[in-house]
Amino acid sequence: MANQNILLIEDDGIARIAAEKCIQCGTCSASCPLNRYMDYTPRQIVALVREGLVEEALKTKTIWLCSTCYLCAVRCPAKINIGEFMTALKRFALKNGYSNSLLYPKLMKTYVEYVNKYGRVSEPRLMVSFSLKTNPLKLLKMLPISIRLLKNGELSISLEKVQNLEEIKF
């Protein structure tokens, strides 16, 4: 990457704050419910960014495993919102073409397409569209239970769209 510190230059908010204020205590890493599946702990991600190794941070699995539950954020003794820091990294990874092949970005893109088209989202439809793009076999596996739920009226695939869609173009 041309400029390793471009994140800090572009982002005048959370990434800069995190890099400047972090005391590397590891409370965030210990608090994270998904820490054991991450390739780098949250503390290490902050350290990478601080050292200018942004590209390495953007390529981690860690940023996409953050579910923004904010347990790290409420416990951080330096009062850094690590959840928002991860969100900033996700946004930056997408913008710069990392992560395009990952599942989570595909889910987000499907979600955004729905919202832009209808103004709202139907969760069952979102799941079907997402699965068709990524793992159609999974749909086959879910077919029996889906049919049962549909018959019982527990699942609805109808979607009322926003009437005035012009109002959500910005």
Partner: peptide, 24 residues
């Protein structure tokens, strides 16, 4: 005629748009 709240899934891709969604 409410619309999507502009949740995190949306906000990661389009932060400004997510505030517009919420604001409406």
């Amino acid at each position: 005629d409410w619309n999507c709240c502009g949740s995190n899934l949306y906000r990661i891709i389009d932060e400004r748009g997510s505030y517009f969604l919420g604001a409406r």
